[in-house]
Design a protein around this nucleic acid. Structure first.
Lengths: 96, 96
DNA sequence: TTATTATATTAGACTTTTCTAATATGTCAA
DNA sequence: TTGACATATTAGAAAAGTCTAATATAATAA
């Protein structure tokens, strides 16, 4: 049995961030498609603009995604290797 | 972007269950060592008996672990393939 | 400048999670 | 049976998460 709880805090943070249907969906979608802007996620997921934005904020805080602005929209992409590994472990390499 | 949020609920449930340092630690330890009883987890993790038991209960509800009694102690083991895949994706095959 | 579009942030109500302390259950040994 | 040990369950307080609605910011277009 592993002893040092602190070692697991960062990883648990990633898992917790992915542990919500909307955030899992966003993260999987981003890995499958490379990148995406917020309004598109909004439409696809049928979640409010504010909701999507708040979920993205959690993913950002967990170091999972990063956004960059193009014109007046912001595109997000997944930057966390552990998060990518988790998604692949769950859904396989081909994220249809 | 994936569209059906409902499809992700079960998986998100697993991720959420693993998304706590104590539960991640327990799950990783169980996969590394095969199985373990509750008092041993208690000692190693320095978490209260009640605490360990409540965390185990969440892991059980998420379908991640299962316990079986031997005498008056209960041994737990990981029974969820997705959970095993996640742990391996995070820590590799050799969980020292 | 003003208006419009895209996104973020805040506020507040509500729900869920987490922790500690106490109590309950189940098994074994004397 | 009683007592000891291992584990589970309950209760309640505090903290964190989630949702909706409203407001704020940033970029662009007219």
């Amino acid at each position: 049995m592993e002893m040092d709880l602190k070692d697991h805090e960062v990883t648990a943070e990633i898992l917790k961030a992915l542990g919500h249907p909307v955030r899992l969906c966003i993260t999987k979608g981003l890995i499958a498609n490379g990148r995406c802007n917020v309004s598109y996620m909004e439409e696809c997921l049928e979640v409010s603009q504010s909701g999507v934005s708040q979920h993205l904020s959690k993913l950002k805080n967990a170091g999972i995604v990063k956004g960059y602005r193009t014109g007046n929209e912001i595109y997000y992409e997944v930057i966390s290797k552990p998060a990518q590994n988790i998604i692949k472990a769950l859904y396989g390499e081909d994220l249809s």
